[in-house]
Design a binder for these strands. Structure first.
Length: 156
DNA sequence: GCCAACGTTGGC
DNA sequence: GCCAACGTTGGC
């Protein structure tokens, strides 16, 4: 059982969108970074915990809890010419971009970056490093439990 | 809108 | 394989 932080732009897919989606599940489309892809392709397992993070928005922060809900499969948007994430260089016989489904569990109160920075337990979080741009990052069990129990005050 | 950080591209 | 130029991310 592992834990992850996954960034989503709420203009595209917010925690509310995910909670109201069919099966409370969304396909994590649009990842175009190899490191982030590799986490989904190689390291995620169904049931892993996910911190659902809102980025590039007025209030960036952790907005909900979710879980990995599928094994990896090709991201369909890479083959759709009209999609902003279209990748003409990806070969359908050997797709470059894979994704997983993510199932929303619940919405938390918004835990901002400033709040995350207040706690020594979370000082090692990749998301808090200067210049971090990786959209999917591993979270340690200690960080996960601290955030869920202390900051979000909820049981996943 | 600014800009730091960092990934990607492409000429050599 | 180096590395400068360019593009993107994302908080502020």
């Amino acid at each position: 059982m592992r834990y992850w932080l996954m960034k989503s732009e709420p203009d595209e897919t917010s925690i509310d969108d995910a909670l109201t989606a069919e099966g409370r599940t969304v396909a994590w489309t649009g990842v175009r970074n190899y490191q982030a892809r590799n986490f989904m392709r190689d390291e995620m397992r169904i049931g892993d915990g996910v911190l659902f993070y809102h980025s590039s928005c007025p209030e960036p922060g952790i907005a909900g809890l979710a879980e990995v809900a599928s094994t990896p499969y090709p991201d369909p948007t890479q083959f759709d010419r009209k999609n902003p994430y279209y990748d003409p260089a990806s070969d359908p016989a050997n797709p470059r971009w894979l994704l997983v489904d993510v199932k929303a569990r619940l919405k938390t109160r918004l835990i901002s970056l400033a709040q995350l920075r207040e706690h020594a337990e979370l000082a090692g979080m990749i998301i808090l490093r200067r210049g971090n741009r990786l959209s999917i990052t591993p979270v340690t069990p200690i960080e996960w439990h601290f955030i869920v129990k202390t900051l979000a005050d909820c049981t996943p």
